[in-house]
């Protein structure tokens, strides 16, 4: 039997790089982070998303590339032949520590996974900038004007904390937990959802995720696909069920099971992962490695579970 040759992508050239003194050979075009993974070297990441183009905004993944003036983001910088990278040098440890402290002192990271472990690893003490400022009233940060601010007396550490935005029944935007990773905006925009309901508004420390003019979600272009929740690394975006249960003190991931099945609403066949606690679906995620949907769903798959149960909200 003869076989017809199948055209594959041309084989990628391999390049040799050194990570922490050890040589590794990876395909050309790989990121430093991928090279680190190949060696089993852990790199902390926050703004990196496995289904999104890197924004390299958080800088917690920085590494030292030999000969470079500044540190480089491992999540996006491509390897080059002969590149020598240090992932645990003093400069790297210092910058990672500072990023964790700067974020930890200005954002509520209580629902961000792994932060405690990293704080410990890098000796980060987010509380050393002084007592936290009082949370801003709802809408105050959204009204700030670019290029000007009230200079305080330095007695408190400014934060982005503010009450959560609860303006619809399905999900909550708790921007006091937002690290400005841009992932929700990218998921809502041209990379996945094409709804463009949210963008980044304002500038500098007053930058924030916002609908146009900060209108409530029901007045915006949001179609409640929840694809922003799927990629949010901090819990700033969460199902109303999760938000309410956390407020009640009943949220308990230890007691939850996850079951991945196929959404029954239409013929696309998206995978849905049902998170169940005490026999109730408490949230729905979708596997990122699904080759078709990459973790994205529509409102039916994401939120259409209410009909199988009736969670009491009083």
């Amino acid at each position: 039997m003869t076989t017809t040759p199948v055209t594959l992508a041309p084989p990628r050239r391999l390049v040799d790089v050194t990570i922490d003194g050890r040589e590794v050979r990876v395909p050309e075009g790989s990121t430093i982070m991928e090279a680190c993974e190949a060696m089993g070297t852990d790199v902390p990441t926050l703004c990196y998303g496995d289904t999104l183009a890197p924004r390299n905004a958080c800088r917690v993944c920085v590494v030292e590339v030999e000969g470079a003036r500044t540190l480089a983001p491992a999540c996006s910088r491509a390897v080059e032949e002969g590149m020598a990278v240090a992932t645990d040098s003093e400069r790297v440890r210092h910058s990672r520590k500072m990023v964790l402290e700067l974020l930890g002192s200005s954002v509520d990271l209580s629902t961000t996974p792994k932060v405690d472990e990293w704080n410990e690893r890098y000796g980060a003490r987010p509380d050393r900038f002084g007592p936290r400022a009082d949370p801003a009233p709802l809408g105050e940060r959204d009204a700030r004007h670019a290029g000007t601010h009230e200079v305080g007396d330095g007695s408190v550490a400014a934060t982005v904390e503010q009450p959560a935005k609860v303006d619809n029944d399905l999900y909550v935007r708790d921007y006091g937990k937002c690290i400005m990773c841009y992932k929700c905006v990218d998921a809502c925009g041209e990379q996945w959802q094409n709804s463009f309901a949210i963008g980044i508004a304002g500038r500098g420390f007053d930058a924030r995720v916002s609908t146009e003019h900060d209108v409530a979600l029901p007045d915006s272009a949001c179609v409640y696909c929840g694809n922003c929740i799927e990629v949010c690394p901090t819990g700033a975006l969460s199902f109303a069920t999760e938000f309410d249960m956390r407020a009640e003190g009943t949220w308990d991931e230890e007691r939850q099971t996850q079951t991945t099945t196929v959404c029954t609403y239409c013929g696309v066949g998206c995978n849905v992962t049902l998170h169940v606690q005490d026999n109730e679906i408490v949230k729905v995620t979708s596997p990122h490695d699904n080759p078709v949907t990459h973790g994205n769903l529509c409102i039916k798959g994401r939120f259409g579970f209410q009909h199988v149960q009736q969670r009491r909200r009083d």
């Binding site: 958080c58 800088r59 500072m98 700067l102 670019a146 420390f205």
Partner: peptide
């Protein structure tokens, strides 16, 4: 005031 706000080291 002039930081664009993109990256943590500068923004905060």
């Amino acid at each position: 005031d002039e930081s664009c706000g993109q990256c943590v080291p500068c923004r905060v």
